[in-house]
């Protein structure tokens, strides 16, 4: 127990290439990240605010971040961390999503399928919800999700499996309710 270990930075090592401009990265990834967090929060405005904040933090240190192998990974990570912090603080997402369950499907805007899916996501435990969203919307492989979530790949697979099962059950219930209405 006497070994002294060397510190490591949390951020990836810089690599030599032409860094993308901040505007390019923003244009290419803002909307996609917002959709992912919308699926997590159930609130598009909240998701948009979080993503904008992540980009603000990135811009403040863009000189460093643009040198990373994958600057978007940094932004995504910050956005998700902000999302999780906000969710933990306010628990607004659940309230919102519960509210959405009784929203009029015929109201202009989201389709009934989208409302049902977002509402169903809102019933999942946070770890399962993150796994499902990161897998299906961010297209991250299980290994990367495991690294991000600091869990084993097996745990991610389990979360995905349970999340899928719960979503299926929720959407089935939602379908039958919709049919009865």
């Amino acid at each position: 127990m006497t070994a002294i270990v060397e510190p490591r930075s949390e951020t990836p090592d810089p690599v030599q290439h032409d860094p993308p401009s901040f505007d390019e990265v923003y244009a290419a990834h803002f909307a996609d990240l917002t959709v992912q967090l919308y699926a997590y929060f159930g609130d598009r405005q909240e998701a948009q605010d979080v993503v904008q904040e992540a980009f603000c933090r990135a811009f403040a240190r863009w000189k460093t971040i643009s040198g990373y192998d994958d600057p978007v990974a940094w932004i995504r990570r910050v956005a998700w961390n902000l999302a999780v912090s906000r969710w933990r603080r306010a628990r607004t997402a659940l309230g919102f999503l519960r509210g959405q369950r009784i929203a009029e499907p015929a109201a202009e805007g989201p389709s009934p399928e989208r409302i049902a899916l977002v509402a169903a996501l809102g019933t999942l435990p946070p770890a399962q919800r993150r796994a499902v969203v990161l897998h299906y919307l961010a297209d991250l492989p299980t290994a990367e999700i495991a690294q991000r979530e600091r869990v084993t790949e097996a745990a991610v697979r389990s979360n995905l499996h349970r999340g899928r099962a719960a979503l299926a059950a929720q959407l089935k219930t939602s379908d039958s309710r919709g049919g009865a209405a």
């Binding site: 505007d23 923003y26 909307a31 917002t34 598009r44 948009q48 904008q52 989201p110 399928e113 989208r114």
Partner: peptide, 20 residues
Amino acid sequence: FADLRAETLPEVQPPGTPAV
């Protein structure tokens, strides 16, 4: 999820880099 993405993407209105 593909539908969710396709349907939501056009609705996202980025505040823009000047706002950042």
